[in-house]
Amino acid sequence: MHQEAFLPARRTPACAAPQPVTLTQAEPVPAAQDHSTTTTERGSFCLARCTCGWSGPARRSRDLARTDAERHRTGT
């Protein structure tokens, strides 16, 4: 006969304090010649991406995604 393993439910104490969030300084954006930005579409959203690994927020407006890419590329 097969017996199911019993796993107790995980419980978080009701009085558990939230953990502090440590914010770090954003790394400076390298020179513009190190960046090549493009826009890509995912369903009804468009987002900007860069060769450095940066990715902008998903936008419904292609124009806003292009603006995000330009701001990233110029460092503004």
Rank of each mutant, 00 (worst) to 15 (best):
42 R>C: 00
51 T>W: 04
28 P>S: 09
46 C>N: 10
56 G>M: 04
40 T>R: 11
60 R>T: 13
45 F>C: 03
46 C>P: 00
45 F>N: 01
43 G>P: 03
34 D>I: 03
60 R>P: 02
40 T>Q: 04
47 L>H: 11
44 S>K: 14
42 R>W: 00
43 G>M: 05
45 F>R: 00
52 C>Y: 09
44 S>Q: 14
37 T>R: 05
55 S>N: 13
35 H>D: 06
56 G>A: 07
40 T>K: 11
27 E>F: 06
33 Q>S: 14
46 C>A: 15
44 S>D: 10
51 T>L: 04
49 R>T: 15
49 R>Y: 09
35 H>K: 05
30 P>H: 02
60 R>Y: 12
40 T>E: 12
52 C>T: 11
28 P>G: 05
60 R>Q: 13
29 V>F: 03
47 L>M: 10
42 R>F: 00
49 R>V: 12
30 P>V: 01
52 C>H: 09
49 R>D: 06
45 F>V: 01
34 D>E: 13
38 T>I: 06
54 W>H: 12
36 S>C: 08
39 T>S: 07
51 T>H: 07
41 E>V: 14
31 A>K: 02
29 V>D: 00
54 W>V: 11
28 P>E: 05
58 A>D: 02
38 T>V: 06
59 R>V: 01
35 H>L: 07
27 E>M: 13
54 W>N: 09
57 P>Y: 04
43 G>I: 02
30 P>L: 03
37 T>C: 15
54 W>T: 10
57 P>K: 11
50 C>P: 08
46 C>D: 03
52 C>I: 15
55 S>D: 05
57 P>F: 07
43 G>N: 11
53 G>A: 14
32 A>G: 01
43 G>D: 07
35 H>T: 05
46 C>Q: 11
58 A>K: 07
31 A>P: 04
47 L>V: 08
27 E>C: 04
57 P>D: 14
45 F>G: 00
58 A>C: 07
59 R>G: 02
44 S>H: 13
50 C>M: 08
57 P>W: 03
36 S>Q: 12
53 G>E: 09
40 T>G: 03
33 Q>Y: 06
32 A>D: 03
48 A>H: 02
36 S>G: 13
55 S>H: 11
53 G>P: 09
46 C>M: 15
36 S>H: 11
36 S>E: 12
27 E>N: 03
53 G>Y: 11
51 T>D: 10
42 R>G: 00
40 T>H: 06
60 R>A: 10
57 P>I: 05
27 E>P: 04
53 G>C: 15
40 T>M: 03
34 D>S: 14
29 V>G: 01
28 P>T: 05
31 A>H: 08
57 P>R: 09
33 Q>R: 13
51 T>P: 01
45 F>W: 00
48 A>D: 02
42 R>E: 00
33 Q>V: 07
47 L>Y: 11
49 R>F: 06
57 P>M: 01
30 P>N: 08
58 A>M: 14
46 C>Y: 15
46 C>V: 15
35 H>M: 03
29 V>E: 02
53 G>H: 13
43 G>C: 04
32 A>K: 02
44 S>F: 04
37 T>A: 14
54 W>K: 09
60 R>M: 12
42 R>P: 00
38 T>C: 09
33 Q>P: 02
39 T>A: 10
32 A>C: 07
28 P>R: 06
31 A>G: 05
44 S>N: 13
28 P>N: 04
28 P>W: 04
60 R>H: 14
